[in-house]
Design a protein around this nucleic acid. Structure first.
Lengths: 134, 134
DNA sequence: CTGAATCCGAATCGATACTG
DNA sequence: CAGTATCGATTCGGATTCAG
């Protein structure tokens, strides 16, 4: 019953290996892992948004974390920041093509989540029930 | 130049909305965001592994974090844990079908990372250069 | 409006020691 | 081998205050 795994196994496409500490792709995983990165990418996926609009859209994010997350994404070339010298100042955020492609990958995760929440909750119930009397 | 976004926009497939604090899919995002979750899923994607094998594979993970991550994944029905009463004890970890499907989604991210590390590093250089004299 | 700066408790994580 | 337990160190993250 193990054969199918070896058939499915596709070796990594490049000289990279996420499992290695030294692999730069690890950083990508770390960034994606940051608490709000995914939600910001998904939020901007629908189009340009201003700071306060983005903040309103993402329930529960604080101003500090939104700023911090946006800076990180900007630094990595995933988000473009445009300042308009109005009074008061207007700042727009946008996905770059690179950010858009990562956003698409995140959207796969979102869809997965929507589809499998039920399974996960069921598993949790089972798990709790099995470990209740410990 | 905005029309294409609206054409691409596909509304969420269900009564879920990640942006809402109350949405259970947020928990999925949080779990995926946990530092080591992705790597463990990717590690087990290649087949059954024992605790120490998994630990060796994932460079830099501590024993504590591996245990903790595995417990969480087990609780959510993503990983199956099998104990063989040998001496000393043998414990095998495996992806469940659910875990396998999430692993596939994570692999999309891995591939994305491998493909775009260069772009990200370039963006970082640009960013640093632009902000050097501040 | 868009943020930067600071304070501070909470959560995370790693190293170490110990167990069946 | 496969963990559990504990203890600091660091980091995270929210609330608040201030500024251009």
């Amino acid at each position: 019953m193990l054969w199918y795994r070896y058939l499915m196994e596709t070796s990594p496409p490049a000289p990279y290996d996420v499992f290695k500490l030294s692999c730069p792709s690890r950083e990508v995983f770390v960034r994606v892992g940051e608490r709000w990165t995914g939600l910001v990418l998904l939020g901007l996926r629908q189009g340009t948004l201003r700071f306060s609009q983005l903040r309103r859209q993402i329930d529960g994010i604080s101003q500090k974390m939104l700023t911090q997350t946006l800076r990180g994404l900007e630094r990595d070339g995933l988000v473009a920041r445009t300042v308009y010298p109005t009074v008061p100042v207007t700042v727009e955020y946008d996905l770059t093509p690179l950010g858009r492609s990562l956003g698409d990958a995140m959207d796969v995760l979102r869809t997965w989540a929507y589809t499998h929440i039920g399974d996960i909750n069921a598993a949790r119930q089972t798990y709790e029930a099995a470990n209740r009397q410990l």
